[in-house]
Each structure stands twice: as structure tokens, then as C-alpha cells.
Simulated scan of single mutants.
Amino acid sequence: MNEQAKELSAKERYDFDDLCAIVRILRGEGGCPWDRAQTHASIRSCAIEEAYEVVEAIDKHDSALLCEELGDLLFQAVFHAQLEAERGGFTIGDVVDGNARKMIDRHPQVFGDEEPTDADEALARWEARKVAEKGRVTLSSRLRAVPAMLPALMRAEKIAKKAGLVDGTSPTELAGGISAALPSLAAGDCSVLGRILFDLCRLAALHGADAEEALGAEVERVIEAVEKNENSVNI
């Protein structure tokens, strides 16, 4: 164990700089063989998993768990930045600096001369500045910017909103189109399933609902029903 590792292991409380130092030690000579072997690609799924665990902690309203999971997600950010720093790319300092600058630029009503707005207008201004920054002048480029790795229902809702397929849509006509496609699905034509699901996402968004959350809640309800049935049998 090197001297810095000894000093860190003896501390009673740690800060962000300590976390960065721990990652450097894990990646350095005499560090952890597993950590030293990792690349951006090899731990790609870890970032996804940790992000989902943060969301699960939020849904459970568990502050202690949320604190832990946010730490795990932060570790992923520091680790990826360390990988870049080792090959002469960006550092964690660059990550923090870039994000701070972005937040200041995206909130001109707070850090600039623009007048304060309500939440909806603030979001609209955010999106407008984001489009200008990224140079996404076409609708297709803005749609392509929605991450393909998002859960399908969540991605569908974002695409529908950005493509203008939600606002101004008739709920009755949308529901009618879904109903019209159901007989084909019932007959075994699964080619219509994607369109039905997409239109259900549009209908949910139209009513201010979140299709991803709704499906997740229903899955949880089914699991709870199974658990309840098992418990009643075991009594």
C-alpha cells in the first residue's frame, strides 16, 4: 500500500478530491487489476445500471439508498474522466467546468439579462439554446439527438413531442386509430404492434401521463398481486 492509499484509508470523512484520488490509485501501478483493465466500452453497461438504480431509489422515496446510488453514479463519471485523462483527453476538471458553463449559459434569466419566466417558458428557452449550441437546424437532426439507448416508451414520447405529434392531436382520433389496429394484432399481425405502442405513448403524453411510468407501475402491481397470492397460500 502506497503512502497516499494509507492516508486515504485512515480518513474519517471524504470529499470529491478524495474520490478522484481513489480512482487514480485504483487505476495506477499497484492498483486494482480489474479497475486497471477497464475501458469506456467495458464499463458502459455499469453507467446504465447505476442510473437505473438512482431512479429506483427515487421511486422508493428512500433517501439513504438515493445517497448511495448517486455516489455510485458519480464514481462512474469520475472513472470515465480518469480513463480520458490517462490518454491525454479531458479531465474531471474539464467535465465540471464544461457543465458549469453550460448551466450558466442555459439559464440567462438567472445569470444573464433576460427577464424571469415561468417554468414552461424557461424550458422552451433551454431547448432553443440547446438547438442553437448543437447546430441542429433540421427536425431530423433533433430527433436523432434523442438517445437510442433510452427505454423505448420513453424515447417514443420524446420523439413524438419533438416531431409535433402530440400537441394539437385529437385524442378521439388517436384512440380510434389504435382501436382500428387492434383486430389485426388479435389476428396475429404483430407488424402493427409498434404503431399501436407509439400511438399509446402519444395518447398518454396528450393527457399528461408518462407511458414508461404507467407500464412500470402496472408491472409492479402484477408482482405485488403474485406476492399477495403466494403469502395467502402460505398462511
Rank of each mutant, 00 (worst) to 15 (best):
A152T: 10
P147E: 11
L153I: 02
K161S: 10
P151A: 10
E133M: 11
G135Q: 08
A145R: 06
L153D: 06
R155E: 00
R155C: 00
L150W: 02
V137M: 10
M154S: 15
E157A: 15
A145D: 14
L165R: 13
A160F: 07
M149G: 02
L143E: 02
A163R: 07
K158M: 08
S140K: 09
M154K: 15
P147G: 14
A156P: 03
L153Q: 04
G164T: 05
V166S: 00
E133A: 13
S140Q: 11
A160S: 11
G164F: 09
V137Q: 12
K161W: 10
R136C: 05
A160H: 06
L165H: 06
R155N: 01
K134S: 10
K162D: 03
A145E: 13
L139H: 08
M154A: 15
K161T: 08
L150M: 15
M154Q: 15
V166I: 12
M149L: 10
R155I: 05
M154N: 03
R136S: 00
V146C: 04
A160I: 05
A163D: 11
A145K: 10
A156V: 00
L143I: 13
M149P: 04
T138R: 02
K161G: 05
T138W: 01
M149S: 12
K162H: 02
M154F: 06
K161L: 14
A163F: 06
A163V: 05
P147Q: 13
L153K: 00
I159L: 13
L143D: 03
K161A: 14
V137F: 12
K158Y: 06
K162W: 00
S141E: 15
S141W: 07
M149V: 12
V137E: 13
G164L: 07
G164A: 06
R155F: 07
S141K: 09
M149Q: 07
R155G: 03
T138F: 00
G164D: 04
R142W: 10
P147M: 11
A152L: 09
A145L: 07
L143N: 04
L139P: 07
I159A: 03
L153C: 06
P151N: 06
V146L: 07
R142L: 08
R155K: 15
R144W: 15
L165W: 08
M149E: 09
V137C: 08
R144Q: 14
A160L: 13
E157I: 03
K162A: 09
L165K: 12
R144E: 14
A145I: 01
L165V: 03
S141G: 07
K158T: 01
S141I: 08
P147I: 11
A152S: 10
E157H: 08
G135V: 05
K162E: 14
S141N: 08
V166Y: 04
P147H: 12
A160N: 04
I159E: 01
K134T: 11
V137K: 11
S140Y: 04
E133D: 15
G164K: 07
K134W: 14
L143F: 08
G135D: 08
I159S: 03
